[in-house]
Computed example of a mutant assay.
Amino acid sequence: MHPEAAAENAVPLARTVRLPWAELPAGVRSAVGERLGSPVTAAADQTGGFSRGTAARVRCADGSRAFVKAVSRAGDPFTVRLAEQEAAVAARLTPELGLPAPAFRGRLDRDDWLVLIFDDVDGHISTVPWREDELALTLAALTDLTERATPSPLPDLPSWGGPGETWDSWRQLLADEDPLTDVADWARREAPRLAAAEAGFSAAVAGDTLLHSDLRSDNILISGRTVTLVDWAWAARGQAWIDPMIFALCTAVQGHPDPEAILLAHPAGRAADPDAVDSALAALAGRFVVSARQPATWGTAPVRAFQRAEAATTIRWLQARWHRG
């Protein structure tokens, strides 16, 4: 189903416009082969995710494989910054930590291009809506991740969400007397309560667990009983319930009917302070509402569609939580 489908029950896909491997400069492609020790003879371009750069599974003349991401420094600065963040984190996620991350083979800076090279993970992205067996497998992997990542083995990472003062979307919308015509009636009525919940964001999410922070289906690879999390560009520190909350929200955006059940299936989700979770969800909902309104550029219409779905889903989840409360 296309991510811009307007039907309420549509399943939005995380898909963007990427530059194919074959269109990278020849010098960049040759440099990748040199780093891998054998020329690249085949490449399968990957379309999942929202970043703009090249993403490809490559095979070399000697039969070895790798996963390559490449971004042009002449492109948009946001994409380059994300690639720099991912490279910095990936270099520190060493196998000794025992985390479900792909091995990082290093970075290349060639001809104004930044290239990241990883082991190619032999796995597949879950179908959406999620199958129950793959959902259970991923929840078990997230439980193991939380145990291994608390306290964070990367203690100098930023706190999840960044500066608290940037999470004030509902308060700004109210201050601007925004009509909120793009949100559900319930959210318009409850906007002051959402703003009050959002105000506690920084204290609510502060913690010392290493978080992946971006657990959409396209960042989760499943192979047999093994789950690997890719794209750690948004890695941060925070409360242990944040990753399962994000995962629950992403599964709900893509068709699962009950994010609360997914959150509570994780030990940290069951132990979470309900008010803290509400604060995080309120802040996320406001951020999604504002972000979805931004103009679509360089093919970001799928991003905006996904953000609209995230806003609507988060609001519905909060409404259900507050109704039960």
Rank of each mutant, 00 (worst) to 15 (best):
Ala195Phe: 12
Ala196Arg: 14
Ala196Gly: 03
Ala196Gln: 14
Ala196Ser: 12
Ala197Glu: 06
Ala197Asp: 08
Ala197Ile: 11
Ala199Arg: 09
Gly200Gln: 06
Gly200Glu: 08
Phe201Asp: 01
Phe201Leu: 13
Phe201Cys: 05
Phe201Pro: 01
Ser202Phe: 10
Ala203Val: 13
Ala203Cys: 09
Ala204Arg: 02
Ala206Asp: 14
Asp208Pro: 08
Thr209Arg: 01
Leu210Met: 07
Leu211Glu: 00
His212Gly: 04
Ser213Tyr: 08
Asp214Ser: 07
Asp214Cys: 06
Leu215Trp: 04
Leu215Asp: 00
Leu215Phe: 05
Arg216Glu: 03
Arg216His: 14
Ser217Lys: 05
Ser217Asp: 13
Asn219Met: 09
Ile220Thr: 08
Leu221Thr: 13
Leu221Arg: 05
Ser223Pro: 02
Thr226Glu: 14
Thr226Ser: 12
Val227His: 01
Thr228Ser: 13
Leu229Arg: 00
Val230Tyr: 06
Asp231Ile: 14
Asp231Ser: 13
Trp232Asn: 01
Ala233Lys: 06
Ala233Leu: 07
Ala235Glu: 03
Arg237Lys: 11
Arg237Ala: 03
Arg237Thr: 04
Gln239Asp: 09
Ala240Gln: 02
Ala240Gly: 08
Trp241Val: 12
Trp241Leu: 10
Asp243His: 06
Asp243Gly: 06
Pro244Asn: 06
Met245Tyr: 03
Met245Gln: 05
Ile246Cys: 11
Phe247Leu: 13
Ala248Val: 07
Ala248Tyr: 04
Cys250Ile: 10
Val253Asp: 00
Val253Glu: 00
Gly255Ala: 09
Gly255Tyr: 10
Gly255Asp: 03
Pro257Asp: 04
Pro259Thr: 04
Glu260Val: 11
Glu260Tyr: 05
Ala261Cys: 08
Ala261Ser: 10
Ile262His: 02
Ile262Cys: 07
Leu263Met: 04
Leu263Ser: 01
Leu264Met: 14
Leu264Val: 05
Ala265Asn: 04
His266Glu: 08
Pro267Glu: 04
Ala268Tyr: 05
Gly269Trp: 01
Arg270Thr: 07
Ala271Ile: 13
Ala271Asn: 08
Ala271Lys: 05
Ala271Val: 14
Ala272Asn: 03
Asp273Ile: 13
Pro274Met: 11
Asp275Met: 15
Asp275Glu: 15
Ala276Lys: 05
Val277Asn: 01
Val277Cys: 10
Asp278Thr: 13
Asp278Cys: 14
Asp278His: 07
Ser279Thr: 13
Ser279Arg: 05
Ser279His: 09
Ala280Lys: 05
Ala280Arg: 09
Ala280Thr: 11
Ala280Pro: 03
Leu281Gln: 10
Ala282Lys: 02
Ala282Cys: 10
Ala282Glu: 08
Ala283Gln: 07
Leu284Arg: 09
Ala285Ser: 14
Gly286Asn: 03
Gly286Arg: 06
Arg287Trp: 15
Arg287Ala: 15
Val289Tyr: 15
